[in-house]
Design a binder for these strands. Structure first.
Lengths: 116, 116
DNA sequence: GTGGATCGTTTCGGGACCGAACTAATAAAG
DNA sequence: CTTTATTAGTTCGGTCCCGAAACGATCCAC
């Protein structure tokens, strides 16, 4: 792992990145939406509503709503699982991949600017 | 600054910390609330509604609402500026300081667990 | 087949938030 | 004083999110 981060640096990093996210025009993602987005893009598929709800320890409707909103934003899409048609698998999109990549760049840049 | 963070590590860090925040029982702070909280606790006083609105590039009512909510949570408090009584200065609280400290600890811990 | 379990979604009442516009209090300028 | 500017808060109509409960679709065991 990288060299240890001190608490003051950690908080400064969180502040700076969050400020960048608040400032840009597009609407902020909630913490729940953000962790759904990152889970879908960082962890191996398949991702289901039930699996995400269990992972985040929130109710299923909360996941459905998050997917509705992020679907409207084009960040994820949904598809029926043809093997077990009760399941819905959450899929990545180009726009979602770009948004995640952009977030990664912001964090890296703000981390690089951190004072010693 | 610490050794460079790779984008994949940065995103993993953001995911892990946000997941911790989503999982604990207390209600999630919005991005706006979080950056207000961190600004108040990281940057030198005094902090005013107007100053925060300018810094975040959001409207004043958004700041007033964020302060209302965080005030109810005990994370910040407000006081009239006695010198210029039009101003309201945002003050730190013990509960707010503890919450910020806890966030710092989470980030540091998750950062330490990051894979190489 | 039939009953029960397991999916994701929808409904419901309630609360939080949004920006634009407005108000009330205070300060500063003339 | 009186006007003008500045500050924080409030009002407004609208949107979004919350968890509990109910729902329809699907799978599985018998």
């Amino acid at each position: 792992m990288p060299i240890d981060l001190r608490p003051s640096q950690a908080l400064r990093l969180w502040h700076d990145v969050t400020l960048d996210l608040v400032r840009d025009d597009q609407p902020d993602l909630s913490a729940r939406q953000l962790v759904v987005l990152l889970t879908v893009y960082l962890e191996p598929p398949p991702h289901t509503v039930r699996g995400l709800a269990a992972k985040l320890r929130v109710t299923k409707p909360a996941i459905t709503r998050a997917l509705d909103t992020m679907g409207r934003m084009g960040l994820v899409s949904r598809r029926r699982d043809e093997v077990d048609r009760r399941n819905v698998v959450i899929q990545r999109t180009l726009a979602g991949a770009l948004a995640v990549e952009r977030l990664g760049d912001i964090i890296v840049a703000r981390h690089r600017e951190l004072p010693l």
